[in-house]
Amino acid sequence: MYVVWVPGSFEIGVVAQRLGSSGRYHAVLCIGAVIRGDTTHYDAVANSAASGVLSAGLKSDVPCIFGVLTCDNMEQALNRAGGKSGNKGVETALTAVKLYDEVLQRG
């Protein structure tokens, strides 16, 4: 496992594409959070993060799994990141394993 930190969710797609294109990984897990503020900036960042991860997977030909939380507040983010609402990070990892096992390994 190799962890790369990015300055914000907007930048995830660029880094995911670089990692996917490196040939060193079977999947790239894109995990982060966008928390709604008082402006419409939230919508632009959340949409760009999703589009960037999708584009990274298509361009690198390596699954880039979208695990970015889009939440209204910090409490919701914490609940979805291992609290009472599950764990989006674990779900993202399981998606990568299932995708690799069921689709990529079996052709």
Rank of each mutant, 00 (worst) to 15 (best):
M1L: 11
Y2N: 12
Y2Q: 12
Y2W: 08
V3Q: 09
V3W: 03
V4S: 09
V4P: 01
W5G: 04
V6Y: 02
V6P: 00
V6G: 01
P7L: 03
P7N: 01
P7G: 00
G8A: 04
G8W: 01
F10C: 02
E11C: 05
E11R: 00
I12V: 15
G13R: 08
G13L: 11
G13A: 10
V15K: 12
A16I: 04
A16S: 15
Q17G: 10
Q17N: 12
Q17A: 09
R18Y: 13
R18K: 14
L19P: 10
L19A: 13
L19D: 07
G20T: 12
S22T: 08
R24Q: 13
R24I: 09
A27H: 05
A27I: 03
A27S: 15
L29Y: 04
C30H: 05
I31W: 09
G32K: 04
G32N: 06
A33G: 05
I35M: 02
I35T: 07
I35G: 07
R36S: 02
G37L: 02
Y42N: 05
A44G: 02
V45D: 01
V45L: 04
A46P: 10
A46D: 04
A46V: 13
S48P: 00
A49P: 10
A49S: 15
A50C: 11
S51V: 07
G52L: 05
G52Q: 03
S55A: 14
A56N: 10
G57D: 07
L58H: 08
L58Q: 12
S60R: 08
D61V: 09
V62H: 02
P63W: 11
C64P: 00
I65P: 01
F66C: 03
F66N: 09
G67L: 02
V68K: 07
L69M: 10
C71W: 01
C71Q: 02
N73T: 03
M74Y: 11
M74R: 14
E75S: 14
Q76E: 14
Q76F: 03
A77W: 04
A77T: 04
L78M: 15
L78H: 09
N79F: 01
A81Q: 03
A81D: 08
G82M: 09
G82D: 03
S85K: 15
S85H: 14
N87S: 14
K88W: 06
K88G: 12
G89L: 10
V90E: 11
V90W: 06
V90N: 03
V90C: 04
V90Q: 11
V90P: 00
E91R: 07
E91V: 06
E91M: 08
T92D: 04
A93R: 11
A93Y: 07
L94Y: 11
T95G: 00
T95D: 01
A96D: 09
A96C: 11
V97M: 06
K98P: 00
L99T: 12
D101I: 06
D101C: 07
E102R: 15
E102T: 10
V103Y: 10
L104Q: 02
L104I: 15
L104V: 14
Q105R: 14
R106Q: 14
G107F: 12
